[in-house]
Design a protein around this nucleic acid. Structure first.
Lengths: 194, 194, 194, 194
DNA sequence: TCCTAAGCGAGACGGTACGTCTTGTCTTCCA
DNA sequence: TGGAAGACAAGACGTACCGTCTCGCTTAGGA
């Protein structure tokens, strides 16, 4: 591929991210992106279907990053309580070191598209994790698998949102601990009577 | 207030809801609403700041409805496990009998505004409920109150979303049970070591 | 007629005139008039068909005023050169003492309706006058009567417009003299070869 | 300039003219023009500030046309009585061959903007002509130059209006003759006592 | 090394939705 | 009970984006 192509795409990504931090995804105009990236209108539409497409293609990086952490955690031995949802700490740390970006993605100014896409990425990770749980440990299989996946993703995003709103007074590890204390009991204690 | 005013507002609400069911909130145009409601453009903007305003003013009804159920549940005696989050069954039933509306509100075609507003309504209810928990029972106070509120609301919406996506094969009571099995342990078992 | 009716109409006329002076006829809104006159919308439309109607009904006064002067001039004896178009000096004086109103009527901010109506009023006067000319004096009757009427009215308005634009450095009598020097030769010297 | 630009502008001009003929300038909507010209709304406002702007830019053509005839007349030798206001016949002929357009411009359905602009165009031509008169012939310099210009333009438009109203029973040459018989004496005979 | 296809910026263009404004009609309410 | 207040439908306005397109200029990468 032409060396220029990659350069154009990078500039577009950078432009979108910096603009999202400033105004939030919804408020960003294609024209804004073009101006910021010094890219022509037609060029933009050559590479991407639209604003969403540019965004989604950017989220792929996050996805890759978290998948690696998940693989590492799954490889190690230990109970699900210890190693389950093994990507979560990595995610909280990623969020922390890119606070401003995540504020734009997850915050008040966000948009449906961003959230939908983020949920999809996380749902994949969670589903992977839960697959390893069912056969080995006390199972949550008496609850519909998808319900649990939705629940975990919702909890994850809720905690991240809250954490960011609180201006991140807590460390990533502490935030992660809260997430796990809220989420794991539901997954692990299904046998206990309610 | 002029009798006509209420009539106009009602017709606008009806129009918005029916259009949301057909196309989803984001896709609905102000002009669509005007045509459906037989209302003039300026009249619309006399009553509402915009599409969002019309929507939000509509969600007030839901809020009132659920608040009543909550009051009833809080009045009755029983442990938090039984009576806590007492509005949840009512909500699942409301969702069930207005499936199509909720699909538009919560579904793939929804918009940020709708969700934000719905979350705010639910957050108020949850916060009310949790206030009654802390003093009486084994407390979740070692977790930040707001984190728990966000978590519960996220869980609630996640389960509803999943339930609607599954075409509601389960009854409202069953869906509510799932929600409670996933959420209550986290609230009640904070003392147990993870 | 109800005493209040006349009061309402007067207030509307006053409002229109003062607003015309401020912004010019075209820029004046019915709502502007209502606000200024403290009159309800429906009341306005009860009395007048619209903005134009209100204006035209106001011009009737001018018409009456000038007609009287014309009658006086026609009654006196003298050649057409002296007494013809006998209302012209009265008009220039009227213009002078209501400069601001005429600026609004005739000026840059005016509107078609105003001008059309003013022309009609003047055309009637001119036509009256020319009727007295034809039989008695050296005639312009070899020119189409209507052409001459249009011409005189056009000349009159042109001179008034110019005079007002010049901020009326000249007295009404001087302006009138200019008008007569420009217009009368054409009417009186038709026999002379061109 | 982009080839497309000229094409767009042409189509807009054509649309405006044909619509003016049908409904008169004032009654023409921007949307009417867009529909007729197959041009997008934003494109229109890219090229013109509004309806007026489009109109005025169209009157530039008339101006150019008449200026050429004036130059030709000025070049020829002869008294002012013969060659003065040398563009007038050309104007009457232009009016005649574009009767429907001029009816829209000058007629009952016209608007202030149209007339104001037309007056300005004609005033320039007249002023040019009168400049050649003063030094060479018996002067009208004892009358304010601007008054005379206004007067001539007023007379010209008056005669044209009358002529068009009469459905042009007269030839352009005859109409021009009437105009000259009405206007020239005033310009040339200033020395004669009134 | 050339030269040719591609990548690109610039921006014109047709559309569509927006929120504002004004008009003339129609309804309510109050004095 | 008649007029003031003002709600209303209609629809034009000028602005803002969108996604498609045409145009030349530049520049890589194969001949």
């Amino acid at each position: 591929m032409d060396r220029r192509v990659q350069r154009t795409r990078d500039m577009l990504h950078q432009a979108l991210i910096s603009l999202m931090i400033e105004k939030g995804y919804e408020a960003v105009t294609v024209q804004d992106i073009l101006d910021r990236a010094n890219v022509g209108r037609s060029t933009f539409y050559t590479h991407y279907v639209g604003k969403q497409d540019l965004l989604i293609s950017g989220l792929k990086n996050l996805s890759k990053h978290l998948l690696e952490h998940q693989r590492a955690a799954l490889a190690s031995k230990g109970s699900f309580r210890e190693t389950g949802l093994g990507f979560s700490l990595a995610l909280f740390e990623h969020v922390h070191s890119h606070r401003n970006v995540y504020n734009a993605i997850v915050g008040r100014q966000s948009g449906t598209v961003v959230m939908t896409e983020l949920r999809a990425v996380l749902a994949d990770l969670v589903r992977n994790d839960l697959k390893t749980l069912s056969p080995n440990e006390r199972s949550s299989s008496d609850l519909p698998r998808n319900a649990v996946v939705h629940f975990v993703v919702g909890a994850l995003i809720s905690v991240i949102t809250w954490w960011l709103d609180e201006r991140s007074k807590l460390s990533p590890a502490e935030a992660d601990a809260i997430f796990r204390r809220l989420t794991l009991p539901a997954i692990l204690n299904q046998g206990r009577p309610l």
